[in-house]
Simulated scan of single mutants.
Amino acid sequence: MATASVRIVRIYLREGEHLLSKLLKFLHEEEKVAGVTVLRGIAGFSTDGKIHTASLVDLSLDLPLIVEFYDRPDRIEAVMDKLTHRLVLAHVVSWDATVHVSP
């Protein structure tokens, strides 16, 4: 099995920020990164200290979202340069990883 070096980026959002569709369009249509996954949390909080949670009585959902994507490290660097000029993203983390690819 072959391996390749990649960089993974994880962006933390909230549904109420309404950034998901813009972010996905940018990553998919404009930058064509290797892979993207969006996760929807059931609870979370950030530096503002306000807990965002799903409950039956809460009809206006503002749940946490995680957008995670990967590509070659040089591609990710270029993507992040463009992305940070387009959108205000408060919580972004990244790390290097190895992808295992089948022949």
Rank of each mutant, 00 (worst) to 15 (best):
A43Q: 11
A43T: 04
S46H: 09
T47A: 15
T47L: 15
D48Q: 06
D48C: 01
G49P: 05
I51M: 12
I51E: 06
I51T: 11
I51N: 03
I51P: 01
T53S: 10
L56N: 05
L56R: 12
V57Y: 09
V57P: 01
D58V: 09
D58W: 01
D58Y: 01
L59V: 05
L59E: 12
S60Y: 07
L61M: 02
D62A: 00
L63H: 02
L65E: 08
I66L: 15
I66F: 09
V67F: 03
V67W: 03
Y70M: 11
D71V: 09
D71K: 14
D71F: 10
P73T: 08
D74G: 10
D74C: 07
R75D: 06
R75P: 03
R75C: 04
R75Q: 11
E77H: 13
E77C: 06
A78P: 01
V79G: 11
M80N: 08
M80T: 06
M80E: 15
D81Q: 15
L83W: 03
L83D: 07
L83R: 05
L83V: 08
H85E: 15
R86S: 09
R86P: 06
R86A: 10
L87Q: 07
A90K: 15
A90T: 12
A90S: 12
H91W: 15
V93C: 04
V93G: 08
S94G: 02
S94T: 14
W95Q: 03
D96G: 05
A97W: 00
A97D: 12
T98I: 12
T98Q: 10
T98G: 00
V99S: 10
V99L: 03
H100A: 13
V101R: 11
S102I: 07
S102E: 12
